[in-house]
């Protein structure tokens, strides 16, 4: 099963490499990874998505928790949560296709954020499935470049991941 694990990490040099290293060292898999500072300058928030059986996920969270730089951790998929990813994509946009692409983008609530005579740059947010579907829809016109942030997430309701 796919899990989304969010981590509050000491904002120390080398901390990120310990996380990434752990995954390769123990043969755990990383689907996506994103990391950025939080409102507290001493902490970063890191989100990984990974796929594995329960036993493997249990080992992943235990080993992550063991890293000295990991302050707190939550497996968001254990409860209801909100999951988002942002994607920027450049597609070929010529002649009649320009309108068609615009219509499709609207259906997906994506925005065209830059244009040239021959291409569009489109921004779209959503869960991984929605982004994948949009990419599939753009495939016939020609996808030139894709930049995805990887999944970020947060628990629904009163639950807060903080110190």
């Amino acid at each position: 099963m796919r899990h989304i694990i969010s981590i509050l990490l000491e904002n120390e040099p080398g901390a990120l490499s310990r996380i990434v290293g752990l995954f390769s060292q123990r043969n755990f898999n990383i689907e996506t990874l994103n990391v950025a500072p939080t409102e507290d300058a001493t902490l970063s928030r890191l989100t990984v998505t990974t796929v594995g059986e329960d036993k493997v996920i249990e080992q992943i969270t235990k080993h992550l928790n063991k890293l000295i730089d990991v302050v707190k951790l939550v497996d968001l998929t254990e409860g209801s949560h909100i999951e988002r990813e942002l994607m920027l994509v450049k597609v070929k946009a010529l002649g009649a296709q320009r309108d068609e692409i615009k219509r499709t983008a609207d259906i997906f609530r994506a925005q065209i954020v830059d244009i040239t005579p021959s291409l569009y740059t489109i921004q779209i947010t959503g869960d991984t499935g929605k982004l994948d579907a949009f990419l599939a829809a753009m495939q016939p016109v020609g996808v030139l470049e894709v930049a995805r942030t990887g999944v970020s997430g947060i628990a629904r309701g009163e639950k807060v991941l903080s110190l």
Binding site: P13, G14, G21
Partner: peptide, 16 residues
């Protein structure tokens, strides 16, 4: 050396 030993230490520090 912090990189080299990363998988075989409990933790490591670099003095700044």
């Amino acid at each position: 050396i912090v990189g080299v030993t990363r998988p075989i230490v409990k933790h490591s520090f670099s003095i700044r």
